[in-house]
Design a protein around this nucleic acid. Structure first.
Length: 205
DNA sequence: TGCCAGGCCCTCTTTAGGGCCTT
């Protein structure tokens, strides 16, 4: 059974290209629908956290001051994930920070990413908002704790990923659902528009 | 102190613009 690594970053802003850095990382390893391991850490990248971000995430400069260095945390996180496929909500965001933080260590980010936001848009077009919290409420997912902290959001994204797999399995069968998700992973890793589900629908109908 | 981006996707589209989503 394929194990995936569901990741969530808290950061100082939206763009590593503009100097933003990660402040917290959480990774949940999923084997099927079962959580088999977790990794979580604050990290000190030597940058200040704005008042807006502190209010948004609850992560303060005092918390970061005593956190381990970002390089150490990212090295541990990369070892923890290994070569497993990764999953995130709005994966383009987390993939940018994953790549940028690892590049600072001279490490390549070679894992493919799947995106629960893009898959949710495909699967449930009737949903009004595709924010992680809105999708969690829509599906009645368990409360994972304070939103916008890395582990809570990673746990929620993991539950959403399980819901996506279950929905795909019930609609298309296990084998074809697995094929659709594989195509989605390949498309995301190429930065291309993932239309796995439409392609799958077109192939079925 | 205040500001910043990138990708998907819809539509009043494709020679473009704007909303959504992530922090």
């Amino acid at each position: 059974m394929t194990t995936v690594a569901v990741i969530d970053f808290e950061t100082t802003g939206l763009s590593p290209a503009m100097g933003d850095r990660a402040t917290e990382i959480a990774i949940v390893l999923l084997e099927g629908d079962r959580v088999v391991d977790r990794y979580q850490s604050l990290m000190n990248a030597g940058v200040r956290i704005s008042a807006f971000i502190e209010a948004y995430t609850g992560i303060s400069n005092e918390m970061i001051a005593t956190a381990p260095p970002a390089a150490q945390v990212m090295d541990e996180a990369n070892r923890f994930v290994g070569g497993r496929p990764m999953v995130a909500h709005n994966a383009s965001f987390d993939r940018r920070f994953w790549t940028a933080e690892l590049q600072r260590l001279g490490q390549a980010a070679e894992q493919p990413f799947a995106c629960t936001l893009l898959l949710s848009r495909r699967l449930w077009p009737e949903v009004r908002s595709y924010r992680l919290g809105s999708l969690a409420a829509y599906h009645g997912l368990p409360d994972a704790g304070r939103a916008h902290r890395a582990m809570a959001d990673a746990e929620t994204a993991a539950a959403l990923w399980c819901r996506i797999r279950t929905d795909l399995h019930s609609r298309y069968g296990v084998a074809q659902a697995r094929h659709a998700l594989l195509m989605h992973l390949q498309a995301c890793s190429r930065k291309a528009l993932p239309r796995a589900i439409e392609r799958h629908r077109a192939a079925v109908h």
